[in-house]
Design a protein around this nucleic acid. Structure first.
Lengths: 137, 137, 137, 137
DNA sequence: GTGGTCTAGACCACT
DNA sequence: GTGGTCTAGACCACG
């Protein structure tokens, strides 16, 4: 399968949102390229034991967003437009999360060094590559 | 006023949760010390144009948590118990946000260096002190 | 009620789409101004004997589009941005329908005069004002 | 080739319907006369990169309607019966599109003059003859 | 096979 | 009161 989602039904963020977010980021990173097929609604629903309507809702939102294209009778694929983005654009997508974390760190009375050190730990645990950059389009 | 909240009604996180989280962090950091008064429900509600019920819900949760104490007729204040926490405890409160950001960075195909650099920028913008630590109790 | 929809369940265009289209046009025309409240999901559903989910779907699409804003616990209202549009922008919204009609007329071997005459008849029947313009923002 | 279709796979109206509608109108106008041959299913499918089943479905509907005739081993042709229609009948086929456009214009708060002017522009761009009528049978 | 639409009902979250 | 989410099942349209 071209993409395997991480779905956590117990997560506070709704399932359909988990799908939407993951597709957005993978398209931005180039992990999903223009023309790539997505798993069918039914297949994805069955694979994660969720309702097809939930998957359909996620796909519909992504289509309205212009990220996915519906090919009638043939499933959905990544739209030609809006495929992989530059590193700076991808960083812009990451910024809100880090901005919120920075504010939390401030409210917690932590120093910048303490927060940076913890983030480095989290990045290592998440298994990010340590090169200066990656797969630049 | 002893504390000024950052309330963003358009934020996806509910208003009452924004209040609760900010009080938690400031108590943990010592920014709010035992005995400090909080703005009254109606004052806080009016200042941010939100529903008094929303503020009341946040305060009630914090009271149930033991962080705030209700003094009849005199508003609420920070409870004596459970005041400032150690640096490691405060770091533990920050970790979830950074963990989520790290996963987003991975899905975006960014390198650890890129993410760290952006976080440093966010920390500087948020105005964190750069010393190795701060106001340790 | 601030707005009354024309819902035709038997129409080939889906119900949720009828709602979306009508809100779009009324916002563009200024019939719905920024800040105006919309009927609640349940109220609209009951008034037209349709499922609340159907209404909710329409509202969600309009919110994703930026036309409506959700005020938590207080229903939805027209967003401040993207309120009434200029006459030329509204004409642009009408153009696709007329473009399609023009192509049909050509394929039907009709003359421009015949098509124009029929359109004039339709406009009169729809009850349009005949002034050179209307409620320019 | 006796007819060249305008097929837009991304159009909301289904492909088979685009074919059916275009044949109907061109037969009504006389652009397709009794006995005229239509492109073969596989030729039309290949020319527009669509599924042969889709073309076949359209042709079958038109055959059931009596507009086309299947000649064994020789493709399809326009049936003798039901060839070109009178101008008033053709206008009746155009009316629904114009009726819908008129309602949209009303909801957009446009004046009749504005809508008529835009329609005139669309007709000119579509290349309609401006004579009072055309090729009346 | 594909996705789309609608229904019905339940439960949750926010104000 | 408000909207959001998810489930279950049915039916349709398209290729």
């Amino acid at each position: 399968m071209s993409i395997d989602f991480d779905i956590l039904p117990s997560d506070p963020v709704p399932i359909y949102r988990q799908i939407v977010d993951q597709v957005r980021r993978r398209v931005a990173s180039g992990g999903l390229a223009a023309g790539d097929e997505l798993p069918s609604v039914r297949a994805l629903a069955q694979a994660h034991a969720i309702n097809p309507m939930t998957v359909s809702k996620a796909y519909s939102l992504l289509e309205a967003e212009g990220l996915l294209e519906r090919r009638r009778g043939m499933g959905m694929c990544v739209a030609a437009v809006r495929s992989a983005r530059s590193a700076s654009q991808r960083l812009a997508l990451l910024e809100p999360a880090l901005q919120a974390a920075a504010q939390q760190a401030r409210e917690l009375g932590l120093s910048a060094e303490q927060a940076q050190q913890l983030f480095t730990h989290c990045l290592a645990r998440a298994g990010l590559p340590s090169g200066p950059d990656q797969e630049e389009p």
